[in-house]
Amino acid sequence: MAQIKSVLRDLLDDVLGLADSYAVTLKHLFRKPITEQYPEYKRLFAERTRGRIILTRDPHGEERCVACYLCSAVCPTDCISIEGAERKDGRRYPLWFRINFARCIYCGLCEEACPTLAIQLTPDFEFSKYGVLDFIYEKEDLLVDHQGKNAEYDYYRHAGVSVEGDKGEHINEKPPVDVKSNLP
């Protein structure tokens, strides 16, 4: 008897549970939808939103990217290709830099990996085209004339190589060792 009772209680619970869920959905039926009507209404996105990618410049207006290949290595869809080269003054830079936006999934890992803060994702997401080749952005398309999210950072001021300033002139460096001197 007790068994039957508990079975019946379980059944009742189940039925009530079902009824509850039906009630919840029914209630939603009469709420006002929260959908925003894009494109009639466009909301503002946060700076950190991950949309179209740009290559920024350092505070001197030089390309920040040093063609370190970290972004292309980390990219899960392998959509970044680069060829590094050396400028006359020893600066390492990408001879060309190509992102295939048809493959990019806007995960932002490239931005996270970039040691020079060169590659940054922007809130621009309205990005559709008819030809798939039009999605291949070259350095000319990616490079912008500002510093993006971080105005200050200048990688070469922190590095040890002499591109901006001689040895010992970078942040937190001692003057170079004089190997021909015997003074302590």
Binding site: G160, K167, G168, N172, K174, P175, P176
Partner: peptide, 9 residues
């Protein structure tokens, strides 16, 4: 926090 030693190449 100190400074780094440097050399000329």
């Amino acid at each position: 926090p100190g400074r780094k030693r440097t050399y000329r190449n």
